[in-house]
């Protein structure tokens, strides 16, 4: 019952078995935040830290995050690295192909604002939020795996407070 305790629900015993009473929002949010499938997609140096985070030492699997190659299977994209103008159009397209609800985590200074290429990079998008909406920004060049994990926990918090009623994209 460990997981269910956290869900703020009541379990009642009836003759023919258990009935769980909770709100729709809570159930949906709980299932969404505990299996965020991630797009198997890396852009630059930050992607290496993302790979290190999903490998054995930091183990993203504990959050229910597994990489999937197709945008149609995924809930979250980690934008991990320098977004060039050429790549930005592709990312927009990948984003459009994802089924809702979809979440974006922008990892590293490059994806947040252009990073080290901000000043002289004629080719770098100055922040992925100019193309697609971002839920969580993780600063750093590259962010440590711990920072990325913190960002993902923040995203889980955000999902936990979502509601079907006042739907925000």
């Amino acid at each position: 019952m460990g997981i269910l305790n956290k869900l703020d629900i009541s379990v009642e015993q009836f003759e023919s078995g258990n009935i769980i009473i909770t709100s729709m929002d809570k159930l949906l949010n709980w299932s969404r935040l505990s299996s965020m499938w991630q797009m198997f997609f890396g852009l630059a140096c930050c992607a290496i830290e993302m790979m290190a985070t999903s490998a054995s030492h930091y183990d993203l699997d504990r959050f229910g995050i597994i990489p999937r190659p197709s945008p149609r299977h995924v809930d979250i994209i980690l934008i991990s690295g320098t977004v060039t103008l050429k790549m930005a159009t592709r990312i927009k397209r990948l984003y459009d192909e994802m089924p809702a609800p979809k979440y974006i985590l922008s990892m590293g200074s490059c994806a947040n604002c252009g990073g080290p290429y901000w000043e002289h990079g004629y080719h770098v998008l100055k922040g992925i939020d100019r193309v697609i909406p971002v839920d969580v920004y993780v600063p750093g060049c590259p962010p440590r795996p711990e920072a990325l994990l913190e960002g993902l926990i923040k995203l889980q918090d955000k999902i936990r407070n979502q509601s079907l009623a006042k739907h925000t994209a």
Partner: peptide
């Protein structure tokens, strides 16, 4: 190519 072009060589001039 070109999806990760970061203009290293031009950058260095600055």
């Amino acid at each position: 190519l070109g999806y990760l072009h970061r203009c290293f060589e031009k950058h260095c001039e600055a």
